[in-house]
């Protein structure tokens, strides 16, 4: 029994879920239990977007110290514009629009890798420079305009199955595939091996550069997909639509129990962390807290959760 309990608390992702549940309970206590269902659906929907980019960021961060993709916000903004412009409000072009957004994201990811590999620029600088380039392209291409999604694509974000939005279920399915890929496939094991020790992985026969290239490409692709989804959910593309996901993509990875130093990743934790962060915002909005109180509380609570999770991990 104690062994079981120890194993339970040793799961690095458990803390983010506990944080999410706690924050949810506090909000409900405040409203007297009103709006529980609505709040849960809202939280799931908003968390799903952070999970999609968090997945890509998680694989990149797991590649080891210094690996991070800072071009995601610009990538998402451009993808939202590309998707909406190609769809042009027509249902027949939905699939083409999504594919174009993903392809654009993939191209950005591969370009990131090219900067890192061919020009030997550190990932932080390479992806940050890339984000400036991509944002400029977006401003020139989208001209800051909000283009609306076609009706069927917009309606799709409202579809529910057993009360849960269908796109949320799709994102859950993607995370399950990613979890399996991480734990059970050569690719996933290679990412973690590179993250633990790149040279050792290379000596052991891991195709290091191919895996890194694939990982940056994957992260870019997920960013592109997220851009298309966001434009549908928020009924329009915009340059700023991805801004929040610079910090959010990294925060869900770290709070979710993935090691910032690389080599250890955690997929379920992404959901826990994303729900936790979204519910925290909902709670503070429900309280009607002042903006300054809101930011301080957000910071303190994130520190508390990371300390709780990190402290446990050291005990192991």
């Amino acid at each position: 029994m104690t062994a079981l309990r120890r194993e339970f608390f040793a799961k690095p992702w458990i803390w983010s879920f506990m944080g999410a549940v706690l924050v949810f309970m506090v909000s409900l206590a405040f409203t007297g239990g009103a709006g529980a269902g609505g709040m849960a659906v809202a939280a799931l929907s908003l968390a799903a977007f952070a999970v999609v980019v968090g997945l890509g960021q998680m694989f990149v961060i797991s590649l080891g110290p210094g690996n991070v993709d800072l071009s995601l916000p610009a990538n998402i903004g451009l993808a939202s514009a590309v998707a909406m412009k190609i769809m042009g409000g027509s249902d027949a072009w939905i699939l083409a629009g999504i594919l174009a957004a993903c392809a654009g994201g993939l191209a950005i990811g591969l370009a990131n890798y090219w900067l890192i590999r061919a020009l030997r620029i550190p990932p932080i600088i390479a992806t940050l420079s890339m984000s400036f380039i991509v944002q400029s392209i977006d401003i020139a291409y989208g001209r800051g305009l909000q283009v609306k999604p076609p009706p069927a694509f917009a309606d799709f974000t409202d579809w529910r199955l057993l009360g849960i939005p269908v796109f949320v279920l799709l994102v859950i399915a993607i995370t399950v595939v990613a979890a399996i890929a991480l734990d059970r496939t050569l690719y996933g094991r290679s990412v973690l091996a590179i993250g633990q020790n790149m040279r050792a992985a290379w000596l052991a026969g891991v195709k290091v550069e191919r895996i890194r290239c694939f990982t940056y490409g994957l992260c870019g692709l997920l960013g592109g997909l997220n851009g298309a989804l966001l434009a549908a959910y928020f009924r329009g593309s915009s340059v700023d639509i991805g801004n929040e996901y610079l910090l959010a993509s990294i925060a869900v990875v770290v709070i979710g129990g993935t090691s910032v130093a690389g080599g250890r990743a955690n997929v379920p934790g992404l959901w826990g962390a994303a729900l936790f962060l979204v519910l925290l915002q909902i709670m503070l909005n429900t309280f009607g807290a002042d903006a300054s109180v809101r930011l301080v509380t957000t910071g303190l609570v994130i520190i508390a959760v990371i300390t709780a999770a990190g402290g446990r991990r050291q005990l192991r």
Binding site: S27, G35, M39, S45, F234, G236, D240, E244, Q281, N285
Partner: peptide, 24 residues
Amino acid sequence: VSTVHGDWDQTTAQKAVTGVLPSL
């Protein structure tokens, strides 16, 4: 009855209102 920050941005406003609406 409630105040949220929408940051003059429809995405942010939709997020904030979506979150707070069930309790209002």
